[in-house]
Each structure stands twice: as C-alpha cells, then as structure tokens.
C-alpha cells in the first residue's frame, strides 16, 4: 500500500478539498432533509428532517437500528432515490451548490467524481458480465478524457493502492473470480478512482469477515489522510464509529436523536436510545451482532407513535413524551439530544 506511483499520492492537489466550500467551512451541509416513499399503505417518511455537516477530511459516523433511514439518507445525498421515493424537502449543500436543485445531468458529473459511494454488498455491486478492470476503468472514463489503455494503467495503480495482489492480472478478472474482500477493494478502488472530496460508505464492512473488515477500515483511514477525503460512514457497529469517526449522529425513525463529537457521545450518551445502543455494543470481533438489548421493536414507519417516537421503548418515559415531540436541544459540551429529559 505504500508503493510509489499510486495515483493518490501523486496528485494530492488541494483543489477539491478547499475550493467552493460552503461558507461555514463545511464540505457538505444537509438541512432539514426529508425523503419520503409512497407505498400502498401510505407515505413512509424514511428520512424526516435531518441535519448534518461534514468538514473536509473529517468523518461523520451515522448509527441506528435497521430501517432508521441511514441508507436512504446516503442515497438522497447522491440523488439516487427513485420512485416511489422522492426528496420531499430540505437542502443538500455541497461545494456551495444545493444538490437537490441540480439537474440529473449536472448530478451525473458529481457522482463518482466529487462524491462517491461504497455499497453495503460487495457481492452484487459489480456487474457479472464485465471484468473488474473494465468497470473501474469506466468510472474513470465517464469523467475524464483518457484513452482505454491510460485508464487501465490507472486502474492497475488503484488496485495496487487498495492492496489487491498482482493487480496487472487481477484487472482481467470477472467478479465471480474474486473473494468478497477483493471485490470490496475493487469497489473502493472504483469509488476513489477520481479522488472524490466526499466518500459515502454505507456499511462497507458488514458483509465481510472480521480480518478483512479491519483491513478495509485501515484502507479508508489511510486514504482519508492522504487525499483529505471527507467520509460519511454508515454503520450498525458502534465499535467502527469509535475507531473511525470524528463526529457521530444517531438516527431513530428517520430523525436525528443525538449528535456530537464521538468521544462525548460514546463516553457520555445523553439520549436514552443512544444509551441503549451503547449498552448493547457487540463484543469485540463479533460480526453482524443484532442490537436487541433495547426492549421492544422499532415502530412501523407507517404508524409512528405520537410525540417522541422512542417513548414506547424508553425507560425514562414521562407524560409529555407521549404528547409532544421534543426538539433537538444543544446541551453543554456541544452535544445535541432530542429528548425531554434535557
């Protein structure tokens, strides 16, 4: 991974990291984002008014139980939400532009170029009929005018950089010739091919086993420092957040319930939901452990309880919780929590 000549170490130009940043110095600022899905039984508010911000080179972790809207959030930022879903409101300021307002064509120039994404499933994220080199090469050629052979040379460099052994030979492999860990490296190589300023990693390691998981995380860390890429890291795994993230947001039923820097939130969680999540931390090295220490289950998105949506499961529930939705309040130390206790 330290060999010279990798495309990343060659050209660490600060352009994307500093140019066109939002006024506040953040690379990405999401305000009041709402993404809804129309279903037979009604409208599912998968993401319902969330805010987040990431500065260049920083990592924001997003945690929460399955179905709380993490993937929908990341797809919204990429503008990849399809019917029956749509972005119902809010702003996604990136590089000074509101992505919500861009045309599909303008958005296409951002995807893979300025913002790219690593998916949850390395097994199925590669097209079975093309060689992996071909697919990564395409990601380059979509945005840059380079010849096929130049693209291939860059792919070989990228493969070397993400730690794929004998990359010259591996570029000619089809996905089914590769193991899950190798495929995920290919996906990472593809996501990083053009040195995006924002990398969205949606559970990049859940499908992998533990040792490979650790290697992939090392890789992302390494790239973050080399290229100053900001990372939006979505995960079930609090351990991963502790290791990787600068800040964290905790989501529940499409809303942010707690937000703050990682150390404060993990050491001293405020929201009862965060407390519950932390007390159910999977023991080290156990993969995909279900977080079910919190009593009860996530309510149906079609039938959310009135007031605080966590109230039915909350050990500290009070009368007001069933009546009124609490605001996201800033507490001392800068941590925000959406709870009537504060």
């Amino acid at each position: 991974m330290r060999q010279g000549g990798s495309p990343i170490s060659v050209s660490t130009d600060p352009r994307e990291a500093s140019a066109g940043r939002n006024a506040s110095g953040n690379l990405l600022e999401v305000t009041d984002l709402k993404t809804y899905f129309k279903t037979m039984d009604g409208v599912v508010k998968a993401v319902d008014g969330i805010d987040m911000a990431i500065a260049p080179g920083k990592t924001l972790g997003v945690v929460g139980e399955s179905g709380c809207g993490k993937s929908v959030t990341s797809l919204s930022i990429m503008r990849l939400v399809d019917l029956p879903g749509w972005i119902a409101g809010g702003q996604i300021k990136f590089d000074g532009k509101d992505l919500v307002k861009l045309s599909e064509e303008e958005m296409r120039h951002i995807r893979g170029n300025k913002i790219s994404m690593i998916f949850q499933e390395p097994m199925t994220s590669l097209n079975p009929v093309f060689t992996v080199g071909n697919q990564v090469g395409e990601a380059i050629r979509v945005h840059r005018k380079v010849s096929k052979s130049e693209a291939e040379a860059r792919v070989v460099d990228l493969f070397r950089m993400v730690g794929i052994p004998s990359p010259e030979r591996r570029v000619k492999d089809y996905p089914h010739n590769m193991s899950g860990g190798m495929r995920q490296r290919v996906m990472i190589a593809m996501a990083l091919a053009l040195q995006p300023s924002l990398l969205i990693a949606d559970e990049p390691t859940t499908a992998l086993d533990v040792t490979i998981q650790a290697q992939i995380l090392e890789l992302i860390k390494d790239l973050r420092t080399k290229v100053n890429t900001a990372v939006l890291l979505i995960t079930h795994d609090i351990g991963v957040v502790a290791e990787m993230a600068d800040e964290v947001i905790v989501m529940y039923t499409g809303k942010v319930v707690e937000q703050g820097d990682v150390m404060s939130v993990l050491r001293n969680p405020k929201h009862p939901y965060t407390v519950g999540l932390l007390s159910s931390i999977p023991s080290l090295g156990v993969k995909n452990q279900r977080l079910n220490v919190i009593p009860g289950t996530v309510p149906s998105p079609l039938n959310l309880p009135k007031g605080c949506t966590f109230a039915p499961r909350c050990p500290h529930v009070m009368g007001i919780c069933h009546e009124q939705e609490p605001p996201l309040k800033t507490l001392e130390g800068g941590v925000k929590a959406k709870c009537w206790l504060y």
Binding site: M78, L80, R108, G112, F119, N127, V129, E138, V142
Partner: peptide
C-alpha cells in the same frame, strides 16, 4: 434494482449507457 446498476449510477454512468452496456448484456 440490482446493486451493480446502482453502483454504475453512483459513479456517474449515463442512463443510456447503463441500459445498453450494463443491463442489456445481463
């Protein structure tokens, strides 16, 4: 709805190219 289609979109491949180059061969 396969993930590789979404992955292709996520790197900015155009719809026409996805239809004829990525999905059709499958």
């Amino acid at each position: 709805s396969m993930e590789f289609t979404e992955a292709a979109r996520s790197v900015g491949v155009s719809n026409a190219r996805i239809i004829f180059r990525h999905i059709l061969p499958n």
